[in-house]
């Protein structure tokens, strides 16, 4: 069984520092953000450039090349709704360290991303949603199936899809948390890989609680089958819990120094 896959979320256009660096094509803040995540143990780095309607086709290849030059052993997760920008990014992407991940497809307007993944032999995050947050798990599984159907007709091996049941905020949607975990269990029982954005869960909570909430949710989700997550790798407690869960799940052989690896 493969180890838990971590996707570092910190190169995101929502961060003012990153937004400015992307706009000005300033490598340093982006590389610094990447380095702290790589050093913290992130397997993949997510690169969110936003919709980038104006210059996405030029921006995505620039940032892909920049990061791959500096971190040739760290594969990337290309995060934008702009198909042309994704395509341009994948074209310059070096696969030596691993396939690119497209973030993301859904069962609605972004289902075409499945075709893109098939066309370029990429992995893709399949958001089990169509418009907004799915109402219940019947909807989630329905969308999951629609994504699968599309993958089958596009010739994409489901091994390449990370199904995201859409994690929801605990502060406000407390009653939905168990449902999300149950969706993970159902998708896992179907034999598929899963992922999700952990910061969704703790959104709006006080800073000192966010790390704890994400780590706890992650541990519970792993037991329900979660195989990867989009995370802040600089949250050491979360990383230690992920490593410990890998040991308890038998995905990594125990030794006294397992946290140091």
């Amino acid at each position: 069984m493969a180890r838990f896959l971590t996707i570092g979320e910190r190169i995101h256009v929502i961060s003012p520092v990153i937004r400015k660096a992307l706009q000005e094509r300033d490598p340093k803040p982006i590389i610094d953000r990447a380095r702290e995540q790589v050093e913290a143990g992130a397997h993949y780095l997510d690169v969110n450039i936003g919709p980038a309607d104006r210059d996405g086709e030029e921006l995505m290849p620039w940032v892909v090349k920049l990061l791959q030059q500096e971190f040739p052993n760290t594969p990337l997760c290309l995060d934008t709704a702009n198909t042309k920008a994704l395509e341009a990014g994948i074209k310059v992407y070096d696969r030596k360290a691993g396939k690119p991940i497209i973030n993301s497809a859904d069962a609605g307007s972004r289902i075409g991303m499945i075709d893109l993944a098939a066309q370029y032999d990429a992995m893709v995050i399949g958001l089990c949603a169509k418009e907004g947050i799915p109402r219940d798990n019947d909807e989630r599984i329905q969308y999951c199936t629609e994504i699968l159907d599309r993958a089958m007709s596009a010739g994409l091996d489901p091994e390449n899809i990370l199904f995201d049941p859409l994690f929801v905020v605990v502060k406000g949607m407390q009653d939905k948390q168990q449902e999300v975990l149950e969706a993970l269990r159902q998708i896992t029982e179907m034999g598929f890989k899963t992922t999700g954005g952990l910061s969704n869960v703790s959104n709006g909570c006080p800073k000192e609680l966010r790390g704890l909430i994400e780590a706890t949710f992650c541990a519970m989700a792993i037991q329900c089958g979660l195989t990867s997550a989009i995370i802040n790798p600089c949250n050491k407690m979360l990383m230690d819990i992920i490593k410990t869960a890998d040991v308890i799940k038998g995905r990594n052989l125990y030794c006294d120094s397992y946290l140091e690896l």
């Binding site: 052989l253 125990y254 030794c255 006294d256 120094s257 140091e260 690896l261």
Partner: peptide, 14 residues
């Protein structure tokens, strides 16, 4: 002892 085998390899490489 497979856990110690792994640990010793890590200690020696460290």
């Amino acid at each position: 002892d497979l856990n110690l085998a792994k640990q010793l390899n890590i200690l020696i490489t460290q």
